[in-house]
Design a protein around this nucleic acid. Structure first.
Lengths: 251, 251
DNA sequence: CTTTTAATTATCAGATTGATAATTAGGAAA
DNA sequence: TTTCCTAATTATCAATCTGATAATTAAAAG
């Protein structure tokens, strides 16, 4: 809100000193697919609390930034990627503000979902440039399956789960999965992304039938790797999938 | 984030005085349906900036509250409702953090979607108890249609639109629309909610066919008002609608 | 009663789905 | 170059779902 209505001059009389300071942070749930597996970028914490535990990358929001600006900046620092262009999909996930989520002080964090494009085999390099913590890629579903001791720091397991659910859900009715692939891709590559995120196999024929009309045919074909017919190269569109592509039931 | 990873001792060395103060707020997009129209609760601002413009209700987040706690508290203050129970649906929408969204100082606001139950004709009373600003109900689609001068204060038009889109979208694949009705309701009441939110008529027969298996039959029937067969009373479930109920195409 | 109204059920052609099989076209091996 | 292998694509088919429309049912109003 701005200028609360229950007491109209609240903000005018608002004195920052009256409140304990609040730190605003931006956390990142960065996904990329390689080897048919959905990976998430995590960092190993070097200090207390949660020393040696894995955590989501993130950082503080500067005074002249929006939360998304900060997320973009942190991502660039983390990956060394240029991000000059539209290569990266970023969207806001949710804000986590439980008063005691950080034992040291009040940290309110706005989490962001980030999708990086890969060719399906090579993960983007992380933390290349001089930064402290060692960042790495971890299989997202395994992290979430979470051996009891292997939970993430703070409430980051919840954030990661929210991020995965957001992505998995949106893939039912949008073509957002294409953001995990290069500008041109085959239906098999796209299907692999679906299988990696949904952690469930898809019937190739039906997948092709459903997705083809949502994509733009480039007219080009790939040379096939180990035998098989050449695959058509497609480009993403912003079309919505209607009716949605059903996620295989999990019972 | 907590304890940024690009510089591990960042938080330890974090000095609140280094940053301009940030005010944390919780805004509310409160919906209720009456007379087949979706209404949103708005307050008329009494002070600058945006004096005399309509705005979303909201308030600051206290030092010991989460954003959702604050939203609940503000809602109670605004409506005088008890909220003791599960009568009210609250979910987080998004966080708005553009540095200049409030011209006076930095206010980061987490917006919440709130659904109030009505019988379809009477809107809940607002701002009953001694509070300053006059709050009232306004037709949501008309507000969004927005006569050029009639925009909401701050970025609240965007927040309202985001809230409506969230609700409208979720109604395709969940039974969240039942949160705008009493515990027991008829299919016609539920259809009216869909029509009010989607701003589009629905075929009664097909609506019944699709929704009936998602609801719990109470076995009871209503006495009908102005003629017509008695309607079955249903209760909500948490089932998902699969495949989703398609929103009438708008072209 | 008879008429009016609203809730519900029924129909029906066209789409969509899930399962499965057939076809196609390149690479690799004989 | 012929044959076999593999992967991409297309084809089938029954079951289900959709959108449109009509028929049936049951209560209220005159």
């Amino acid at each position: 809100m701005n200028g609360p209505q229950t007491e109209e001059n609240y903000l005018e009389s608002y004195n920052p000193g009256d409140y304990p300071p609040v730190a605003l942070a931006a956390d990142l749930v960065v996904f990329a697919v390689a080897g048919s597996v959905l990976h998430v970028a995590l960092v190993r914490r070097g200090t207390h609390p949660f020393r040696d535990r894995l955590a989501l990358p993130g950082g503080f929001v500067g005074p002249r930034e929006s939360a998304e600006d900060a997320a973009r900046r942190e991502l660039a620092e983390e990956t060394g990627l240029d991000l000059g262009g539209l290569l990266v999909h970023i969207e806001q996930l949710a804000t986590y503000s439980a008063p005691l989520r950080d034992p040291r002080m009040r940290v309110v964090s706005t989490a962001h979902l980030v999708l990086l494009a890969t060719n399906g085999s090579t993960l983007p390099a992380l933390a290349g440039a001089g930064d402290a913590a060692d960042a790495g890629w971890y299989p997202a579903h395994e992290i979430l399956a979470g051996k009891p001791g292997g939970q993430l720091a703070f409430d980051h397991s919840v954030i990661l789960l929210d991020g995965l659910n957001r992505l998995a859900g949106k893939m039912e009715y949008t073509t957002v999965a294409t953001q995990l692939l290069p500008g041109e891709f085959t239906l098999t590559q796209l299907r692999t992304v679906y299988e990696a995120v949904w952690n469930s196999p898809m019937a190739p024929g039906n997948f092709t039938r459903k997705m083809t009309p949502q994509l733009e045919d480039t007219g080009q074909k790939t040379r096939t790797a180990g035998g098989g017919a050449p695959a058509t190269l497609f480009r993403a569109t912003d079309r919505h999938i209607h009716p949605p592509l059903a996620r295989p039931r999990t019972p």
